[in-house]
């Protein structure tokens, strides 16, 4: 089956549109991933919101390390690591990982494509596509 992981960014919603899109690249990646997904599984998640002083949650020195580990698990389709995420730390870092921790049984991830990996506003976003044989 196909799985797409996207961040729950409110700026993507039409009621919050600006004249100049502040998340244009992310929007493109999200739209393309959703088109590709079809009736597959859409997972909404993102990393910490404490990457910089200007980040919504201000700077937390643990944020970069947490996001690095999470990003690595997404890039490798490491479901075991995702299910074992430190949810208490995630909450402290304002990371949205509930859907990752609670992923259903997908077998193994055989193909991965990372369409977006950045933290433009101090919040770590990924757009990732997985293919799982089951």
């Amino acid at each position: 089956m196909r799985v797409a992981i996207i961040p729950g960014v409110l700026a993507l919603r039409p009621e919050y549109a600006s004249l100049e899109d502040p998340v244009a690249e992310l929007r493109k990646a999200v739209d393309e991933a959703r088109d590709w997904l079809g009736d597959g599984l859409l997972v909404v998640a993102n990393g910490s919101a404490k990457r910089t002083e200007k980040a919504p949650g201000h700077f937390d020195e643990r944020a970069a390390g947490f996001d690095a580990e999470l990003g690595n698990a997404l890039r490798t389709g490491d479901l075991a690591s995702l299910r074992a995420l430190d949810v208490a730390l995630a909450e402290e870092l304002w990371a949205d990982v509930d859907a990752l921790v609670a992923l259903p049984g997908l077998g193994t991830v055989t193909e991965v494509q990372v369409d977006y990996d950045d933290a433009p506003y101090g919040v770590q976003y990924w757009v990732v596509r997985w293919v799982c044989p089951t």
């Binding site: 960014v9 409110l10 700026a11 919050y16 549109a17 600006s18 004249l19 100049e20 502040p22 998340v23 919101a49 919504p56 433009p120 506003y121 101090g122 919040v123």
Partner: peptide, 12 residues
């Protein structure tokens, strides 16, 4: 009647 030029506060 007009959208903000570029709004991201609280929306990231």
């Amino acid at each position: 009647r007009r959208r903000p030029r570029r709004a991201i506060r609280g929306l990231a």
